[in-house]
């Protein structure tokens, strides 16, 4: 899969820092699951956090904290929460446990359907699937706030070029969309 449209670097930095609301984190994690080059960049960005952690001022732990840790280390681990496999990339699977076929589409205009994917966080942002019929023009629309659009299947073209599976359109009202063109691969 050749990914040609990547998120803005500041978007990847927000993901690395962990400050995104769940819907945005899901879109970026799904994109990264589809993009090895994107995962390489994410590793580099995580190193910023690693360096900052190294430099962090030490705040003394309470007495007994180490004992508590060593005692807890003896306890058996809880079983890991396993995400069921599905026909979508793993980070998206918990939101579509029965795959894309289970999506409940709502008509949203000619050739356009939407399927809301509920998230657990209480943010005002929203995660959804958007289905556009083949051959339909994708309208240019103005964006209120940040909008991340990841192509799962099919393709579309806009003034930024052709978007295929794994590609992401990272639009923001404040910043002109700027695809990152520095991928190593």
């Amino acid at each position: 899969m050749t990914i040609t449209h990547h998120p803005d670097m500041s978007t990847l930095m927000a993901f690395s820092a962990g400050t995104f609301d769940e819907p945005y984190a899901v879109v970026i994690a799904t994109h990264l699951a589809m993009s090895e080059g994107g995962r390489d960049i994410m590793h580099r960005l995580n190193a910023i956090g690693g360096a900052l952690l190294d430099d962090e001022q030490e705040t003394e732990m309470s007495s007994g904290a180490l004992d508590r840790l060593l005692a807890a280390a003896d306890q058996p681990d809880l079983p890991e929460q396993i995400t069921p496999s599905s026909d979508v990339p793993l980070p998206l699977a918990p939101y579509l446990p029965n795959g894309l076929t289970s999506a409940k589409w709502k008509w949203s205009g000619p050739g356009v359907a939407i399927c809301d994917l509920p998230t657990r966080d209480e943010s005002s942002s929203r995660l959804m699937l958007l289905r556009v019929a083949a051959g339909r023009p994708v309208p240019e629309h103005s964006h209120g706030g940040q909008e991340l659009t990841l192509i799962l299947s099919g393709a579309y073209r806009d003034r930024f070029g052709l978007f295929g599976p794994g590609d992401i359109a990272d639009h923001d009202e404040d910043v002109e969309h700027k695809p990152i063109a520095e991928m190593g691969a």
Binding site: A29, A33, G49, L53, P91
Partner: peptide, 23 residues
């Protein structure tokens, strides 16, 4: 750092770190 971040997302902000764990 990434482990601490994921726990912070999950417990401090009451958001889900599941996308990170699955990735």
């Amino acid at each position: 750092f990434t482990i601490a971040r994921n726990l912070r997302i999950d417990q401090l902000r009451r958001r889900s770190n599941r996308p990170y764990e699955d990735l």
